[in-house]
Every structure is written in C-alpha cells, then in structure tokens.
Amino acid sequence: MKKDTVYEVRTYSSTSISKLSKKLLKHVLIVTIGLGMLYPLLWLFSSSFKPNTEIFQSNSFFPQTFTLDNYKQGWSGLSGVTFGKFFANSFFIVAMCIIGNVIACSMAAFAFARLKFALRKMWFAIMLITMMLPFHVTIIPQYIIFNSLELVNTYVPLILPKFLAVESFFIFLIVQFIRSIPGELDEAVKIDGCGPFKLYIYLIMPLALPALVTTTIFTFIWTWNDFFGQLLYISEINLYTVALGLRMFLDAMGQNSWGALFAMSILSLVPLFAIFIFFQRYLIEGIATGGLKG
C-alpha cells in the first residue's frame, strides 16, 4: 500500500517535470532561433553608435567609443532637407498605397471569388500572368507612359497603380481567403434579401479581415522598402522617401557614410516594426469563431 502511493507520487512528479522541461525546451528553442533572427538587427543597432572608422575595423560587437553623431549627421539629410521630410513623404505614399490596395484588390478579389460573370476564368488567368513578367523589361515602356503624362517626379506613378489593383499578389491572396469562407453563409444572407454590395461589405469583408490585415502589413513594408520605382520616378530631394534617403549614403566610387546609413536604417525599421506589432493583433484575436457564432 505504502509502496504504491510512493510510486504514484513519483509518476505524477515525473510527468510534471517532463511537461515542464518540454515547455522549457520549447522556449529555449524559440529563443535560440530568435537570436539568429535578431542578430543583424542587434549588429546594426550597435554599429549605429560606433564612429565610422570603428565599424569595420574593430571586431568587438559593442561600440568602444559610443557616439550619437551618426544619428545627428544622418538625420540632417542633405542641403537642409532632413530625414523628417523623407519620413513624412514615405508615410504619405505608404498610406495612399494601403488604401488603394485594400479597396481595389478586395473588390477584384470579391468579383473573382463570389460573382459569376462572362470571361471570369480568362481574366483570372490574365491576372496571374501579369505577375510573371520580370519588371525590368516593362520599366521603359511604363516610364514613357508616365513621362508623356508629365507625371514623372510626382508620386502618381507610385500610388496610382495601387488604386488600379496592379498588385495581383493581393488579389489572389484575398481570393484564397474568401474561398475558404463557407458558401452557406452567402446563401443565408441572400435569402435575407441582401444584394452583392451588402454581401461584400457586411459579410465577406469582415470575414476576410485576416487577409486585409495581411495586405496592409505587406503593402506597408514593401512600399516602404521598395526603392527601384522610387529611384526612377523621384529625383527631386524634397520628394525623397526614406528608401531613397538611405541610398544617398552609398556611392561605389566614393565614400560611404556607413554610420549614418546604419543609424537611419534603425530609425526606418521602427515604423515597420510598430506596424507589424500593431496589426498582428488582428491575426491573433480570432474573429473566425466569434464571427461564425454571431
């Protein structure tokens, strides 16, 4: 009898220990991989406080001489136009692109996923095909179009395409999400007498929210980082974006201002990180279950 109880206690404690150690192992694993993910950021961060000469010449991870000069010098930008201006410009472009992408892509996606109309499959195929041509060969024709409309050196070439749902990636993404929404829900709504517009706004959009959030996050990050389009279409410094501002510190034939580049890179990552943290809650707080019940 006594032996048995001891035995029982032992099993109990050993399972709880194994459970605990399993949990611990999980966290250790996550943290180790996490460090691998974070290393570049940490390196960039610590380098941004090093004087230019120290960045590549010392092997130490931590700055030996701590300086804020990189931030001051970097922020001052060029000829009186500061990085504050570049940030404002980037925010403006990004915000417009998000609005454009969310509205135009979700509309097209709704049409492809839920509406029946002639040539639907053909248009869908065309949508996919537009993604398959490397952009380098369409740059010049596109530039000629915008130049003939005298829109070069404005933000129109960067923003207008989003309002015309040129990024098929997001259309296809939202289509896939809408297609996993049960069709019976549509029927129920249709029986209630709702037309396609109400169906779009009141049922599909809320249910496809994770896709819209994903579209927002990606549009933000990709537009923020995209520099090639900005490089070709924006040449006046007052219109410069953060991505272009960062390129300013580099010149293969001259001197690179690494310190300033790193400092401003760190600053430019802040909004990206913030947007990810802010919007990811929509990916975490499950709306699917609540939604289906309500």
Partner: peptide, 29 residues
C-alpha cells in the same frame, strides 16, 4: 455578425488613423 463588424470597424479606424498621421506630418508635393 455584430462582433465581426466591430472588428472590421476597428480595423478601418486604425487605417484612418494611420492616414491622418501621415497626412498631418506630410506636405503635398
């Protein structure tokens, strides 16, 4: 359904906030 709409509204609101922040801090070309 109301819960769904609420989260969509919340989402829309946060986008609008983002836009206003951008618009306030930025000048037009």
């Amino acid at each position: 359904m109301s819960k769904m709409m609420k989260s969509l509204m919340l989402y829309a609101l946060s986008i609008i906030m983002l836009v206003t922040v951008a618009a306030c801090s930025s000048n037009t070309p």
